[in-house]
Design a binder for these strands. Structure first.
Length: 487
DNA sequence: TGAAGTTTTCA
DNA sequence: GAAAACTTC
């Protein structure tokens, strides 16, 4: 039985459960628009709904001390990115952004009370922590007779909107992607345009006008390589669209700037995913379709997390529950520090640790190396990525790691194991990326750089000897997975 | 979104 | 004797 749509179904044979984007429009006098992972002022669903429904809107961001308290690094790059993106948002709002520091469960209801706002508008955040937080905020607001109205914004199709004919979640990417594409209509990616004239900056006790300083928040400025805010997102999107035709052929080359480089912006909502999809639909050629496939992977993993949230703690594939991964702590640490003796793996890990970014292809290579060559529990790698990646998104990170570990939705067949040296020749043919991050190998030629050990020429230059033999580890991994799947 | 080992094909 | 095709994990 297909699920019964609980929102208006638009008169278009393609759409299944597509809310029309005006259902938040019941009128109120004053509204709060609470921004979280949607740090922009254009094509913003909650802000558009708020400015449509209310005569005046206060836009607020809360530096969430619960989340910030868990960060170890006082110079966390993500906090710097968010802080500078809020400066950019404040500019877009002509200096009318409000910010606060604290527990949103207390701050948001207090602010709504001070402003006499009947409703708080926000976009869905389906991470488990955010769902609990928003449920509490809603409860607190309700005590006072106020509403929390939330909207889809972060993805084109959320939660159960793309499902099998039987109404169950897809468990494999390819049929999901087919259904996703078939379901897409122009309406799904229509821009949500807010009326910024209605945004005001009232004086309140619980939030201040303008951005706090980073030191108010308890952090220091970190070095980040990308331009923050929707200004940065816009220029990156423009430069990517100029070369999207080459995306199909260059996206797996670590020596080249061939990927979109937009993941950080999509994570923090400094860019609207609808705008990305509109750009895809407007572009010719294979590149844009390939990129759309990547955006659909993001939506797929969002769906998996929201429909099967236990994947946060447990493998998607039940066969892997309660297995003991035999990898050692020592091997994990060598992997984490980029000291495995496999040049591409080491270069990629050092790049991650230093910059907070890693090429998509290399994420697969290092994840495969940790889980297959070293047989370390994928969750240890997942946590390291979560700490380091500027674009860290729970759903994509978890999905990607489980995919590589062969425990996930759309599982890699467990016998599919990358050869890190073959992958190196393919993903890094010029070797420049390796030479940049492994200076020990700077004098290696284009062939030696992928596997410098057999020549013996570089023994004295300080590059670490390989910690394992891939051929041997491959056999161990095959035996391990065979045993797990036979249980 | 594999790799490796073996067999077959074609010059 | 290389390259393509096929098989296995």
């Amino acid at each position: 039985m297909p699920p019964i749509p609980d929102v208006a179904t638009v008169g278009d044979a393609l759409s299944v459960v597509v809310p029309t984007w005006s259902d938040g429009a019941r009128e109120v006098k004053t509204a709060v628009c609470w921004v979280r992972r949607d740090l922009r002022a254009s094509d913003h669903r909650a802000l558009a709904e708020a400015t449509r429904a209310a005569r005046q809107v206060a836009v607020v961001f809360v530096y969430d001390t619960t989340i910030l308290g868990e960060l170890n690094d006082r110079a966390d790059k993500r906090v710097t990115f968010i802080h500078r993106s809020l400066d950019d948002l404040d500019l877009a709002l002509k200096g009318r952004l409000l910010t606060a520091i604290g527990d949103p469960c207390a701050v948001i209801p207090k602010l709504a009370h001070e402003l006499g706002a009947e409703a708080v508008f926000a976009n869905h955040d389906d991470d488990p922590y955010a769902l609990r937080r928003d449920a509490r905020v809603k409860e607190e607001l309700a005590k006072d007779g106020r509403e929390l109205r939330t909207f889809k914004d972060h993805v084109v199709f959320e939660r159960a909107e793309v499902a099998t004919a039987g109404g169950t979640p897809f468990r494999v990417y390819t049929p999901y992607a087919r259904a996703w594409r078939a379901q897409l209509s122009a309406r799904d990616v229509e821009a949500c345009v807010p009326d910024l004239e209605k945004v005001g900056a009232p004086t309140t006790q619980s939030a201040r006008a303008g951005n706090h300083t980073l030191s108010d928040v308890g952090f220091q400025e970190a070095t980040i390589w990308l331009a923050p805010g929707s200004t940065g997102a816009k220029s990156r999107l423009d430069s990517f669209l100029a070369r999207i035709g080459d995306y199909g052929s260059l996206r797996d080359d670590a020596d080249t700037d061939g990927t979109s480089g937009l993941s950080v912006h999509l994570r923090h909502g400094t860019l609207s995913v609808r705008e990305c999809v509109r750009a895809c639909l407007g572009a010719e050629g294979e590149g844009s379709s390939k990129w759309l496939a990547e955006l659909i992977w993001r939506e797929f993993f969002h769906m998996v997390l929201s429909q099967m949230p236990w994947v946060v703690n447990e493998p998607f594939q039940p066969a892997y529950h309660d297995v003991d991964w035999p990898g050692s702590q020592e091997h994990f640490e060598r992997w984490r520090e980029g000291q495995t003796g496999y040049p591409l793996v080491d270069a990629a890990m050092r790049c991650l640790n230093e910059t907070g970014w890693m090429h998509n292809r290399l994420r697969m290579v290092v994840a495969m190396f940790l889980t297959k060559d070293l047989l370390v529990d994928y969750r240890k790698g997942e946590v390291h990525f979560a700490e380091k990646l500027l674009d860290f998104e729970l759903s994509s990170n978890n999905g990607g790691w489980q995919w590589c570990a062969s425990t996930g939705a759309d599982a890699q067949p467990w016998f599919r194991i990358f050869n890190p040296v073959t992958q190196s020749r393919r993903a890094c043919p010029k070797g420049d990326f390796i030479r940049r991050w492994c200076p020990e190998l700077r004098d290696c030629d284009d062939e030696q750089v992928h596997w410098p050990h057999k020549s013996g020429l570089f023994a004295g230059q300080g590059y670490v000897a390989p910690i394992v033999d891939h051929a041997v580890q491959r056999e161990k991994a095959l035996a391990f997975h065979k045993a797990v799947n036979r249980r």
